[in-house]
Design a binder for these strands. Structure first.
Lengths: 157, 157
DNA sequence: TATTGTTATACTCTATAACTATA
DNA sequence: TATAGTTATAGAGTATAACAATA
């Protein structure tokens, strides 16, 4: 079926267009699109462990570390030892990081509006719902399922 | 609005899930997900120039070249001088490349089915349509459009 | 002059495996 | 034994700029 066969490439084309546009927009702020995602993830749930952070932005622990090293060097994030687990380190935005994120969020607004505006108003919600469903389904059995992560989670579900 | 704000990350999560799953599936065939896209693009339109190829898979010319060098070394694609334009080179699949692509297409089928199956049947077509629309909209004014259209594009200094 | 492709270069993200130190 | 993080290492994709050959 055509729709089935076109779905993967259509998804890729849409994401790549978003990624490139975001990259271009944030270049003058010296932040990559993925670094923005990391900052945004921290802005929503501060004091995550590196592992939690990686899971929420679907990145490898060593990838996350590489990104954190870059951002820490620039004073946008900070890492502290976890209060109850000496193995872990909690990651949070510095005041400068928080400022930077607010800038970026503002700078990215027109992109979000462009995307949203391209859609029929009554179909946007279904799009987000279906994208989320696809992500969930594709991750089943692929992502290393871990135990009760929520034990360390500071965020209330 | 929540839908507007969640759209970019939902798109990213869905694509990354697809990308990782595809990467894992094709690893045993020694082909990356992006290399598969290149092969698929060639399978649909053989004898493209490198530039055309790059445009169709939305990749930079130098990126395309890097990928082609890898694939040429493995005998999956071949480059020949363009019949009428001595500057250009046409790219096409070798017989081995064609065989490889058929294998990959088959190997990827369950992923396409998983994605498609996760959607309400009456919403799949709209999803593809809206993803395509998003890609088109976001690429406007960002991608260097070539050919006749470029004549009207005076906005780039 | 504009365009196709190459080259050199650099950087981010990605990922695996071996390692430490804790749990 | 299992987990959090680090380190070393490697590779793919990305992108820019300077360049040659050709249109």
């Amino acid at each position: 079926m055509t729709v089935k066969n076109n779905l993967p490439l259509a998804l890729r084309a849409a994401y790549l267009a978003l990624h490139r546009r975001t990259e271009a927009r944030f270049a003058q702020h010296d932040v990559t699109a993925d670094q923005f995602v990391l900052l945004a993830t921290l802005a929503r749930g501060d004091a995550l462990t590196q592992r939690e952070l990686g899971q929420r932005m679907s990145s490898d622990p060593s990838t996350v570390r590489a990104m954190l090293v870059l951002l820490e060097r620039r004073g946008l994030i900070q890492r502290e030892s976890h209060p109850t687990d000496a193995r872990a380190r909690t990651v949070s935005l510095t005041p400068a990081g928080r400022r930077k994120f607010r800038q970026l969020w503002k700078a990215g607004n027109s992109i979000r509006e462009t995307m949203f505006g391209a859609l029929p108003p009554d179909e946007a919600a279904a799009l987000v719902r279906n994208l989320t469903k696809i992500a969930e389904t594709l991750n089943q059995g692929c992502v290393p399922v871990r135990g009760p992560i929520a034990l360390h989670s500071t965020e209330v579900a």
